[in-house]
């Protein structure tokens, strides 16, 4: 009986999978669609840099495709983003140059500000960046993100500022003038969202199983660092996180949390390549090798609220050397 139930369940699952896959294939073949939102808003939208004086040639910052479907599931209430309580598009008040309706807060500020003053009454607005930054306090993010600050270069901008190459100059011009029809906008947005390439993170299997850290062994025995276990557990925690998937834009991004400040690579340099055993007079701010290890390990553990081992339980990570110094 029990086996029968199991079999039935498996059959149902297989059927569901097939149905889904077929539906997905049909979707790609036919009109690509993200699905419907609960709120009734478009599933995705291209956010153009709408201005009072749009460039006649349609030149401007690359628009952002905002996936409304994913984002609305992550917030409790529409007012988290639509802070006036009126669910209109951001650019109706916040234009490139700033307008009276948006209290002259420019579109750039509205989307990127991180230092937002708390409002006396009503809702304190949030920007894209400020809300994303808040997510880094989550346990699964806080470990790496407390020891490394993500580099905010062009790659970082391009995570959001990306639009399908099929968009024409004319469409851009219409967009920045704020005259694009909703259906056309949705079509462009879905086109971008569905064809967005996604980086596949390096597998933990690609890294070493264990690493012997013994260059400094003196009072304590070398430490056998369980490299794969650490990487696997970090990646397991964020495997379904859309935010992490979007911003971990290169396969080696996760590696760069510990293997920082060098070009991203699956074969990163050793810690001792930069961190010298004794203080480097040319770079007094750079931690020495011993401190570099401790700061990285303990920094990440503290961020993830790993209570054990305590920071002063030296022997948990590296056993004391056999002949004690004292």
């Amino acid at each position: 009986m029990r086996n029968g139930t199991k079999l039935l369940l498996l059959a149902a699952m297989a059927l569901a999978c097939t149905a889904c896959l077929t539906a997905w294939g049909a979707g790609v073949a036919g009109a690509a669609s993200l699905g419907l939102t609960d709120s009734g808003a478009p599933a995705a939208q291209v956010m153009f840099p709408v201005g009072v004086k749009p460039n006649p040639l349609g030149v401007g910052m690359k628009p952002v495709v905002f996936n409304h479907l994913i984002h609305e599931k992550k917030v409790e209430d529409c007012v988290v983003c639509h802070h006036t309580g009126d669910p209109v598009s951001c650019t109706s008040c916040h234009t490139v140059e700033g307008a009276a309706a948006g209290k002259f807060i420019t579109l750039e500020q509205a989307m990127h500000a991180t230092d937002i003053a708390k409002r006396e009454k009503g809702i304190t607005p949030q920007s894209c960046v400020s809300c994303h930054e808040k997510q880094l306090a989550r346990r699964e993010c806080a470990g790496c993100h407390s020891i490394v600050k993500a580099e905010r270069g062009n790659d970082w901008c391009a995570v959001c500022h990306v639009v399908t190459p099929k968009m024409t100059q004319g469409q851009m011009r219409k967009g920045i003038e704020g005259k694009m029809a909703a259906a056309e906008n949705l079509h462009l947005a879905e086109e971008t969202a569905l064809n967005k390439p996604q980086a596949v993170a390096v597998s933990p299997q690609a890294g070493p199983l264990k690493v012997l850290i013994g260059g400094l062994a003196d009072k304590y025995q070398p430490n056998l660092f369980t490299h794969r276990r650490h990487v696997a557990s970090l990646m397991e925690a964020i495997k379904d996180d859309k935010l992490a998937q979007a911003f971990h834009s290169s396969p080696e991004t996760v590696c760069a949390a510990c293997h920082h400040r060098s070009p991203m690579s699956t074969t990163p340099p050793r810690c001792g390549s930069c961190h010298t055993k004794d203080i480097d007079p040319a770079n007094p701010q750079r931690p020495t090798l011993k401190a570099a290890y401790h700061l990285q390990c303990m920094g990440c553990h503290e961020g993830m609220k790993v209570e054990r081992p305590r920071k002063t339980d030296c022997a948990t990570c590296h056993k004391p050397a056999r002949q004690s110094a004292d």
């Binding site: 600050k149 203080i279 007094p284 701010q285 931690p287 020495t288 011993k290 401190a291 401790h294 700061l295």
Partner: peptide
């Protein structure tokens, strides 16, 4: 110090390092 909680250097450099840490 196993944590580099103590950084030795010229006083003027240390002030720069401290400012950098605060802003970074």
């Amino acid at each position: 110090c196993p944590m580099d909680a103590l950084t030795f250097g010229r006083r003027s450099d240390l002030i720069r390092i401290a400012r950098a840490r605060i802003s970074e």
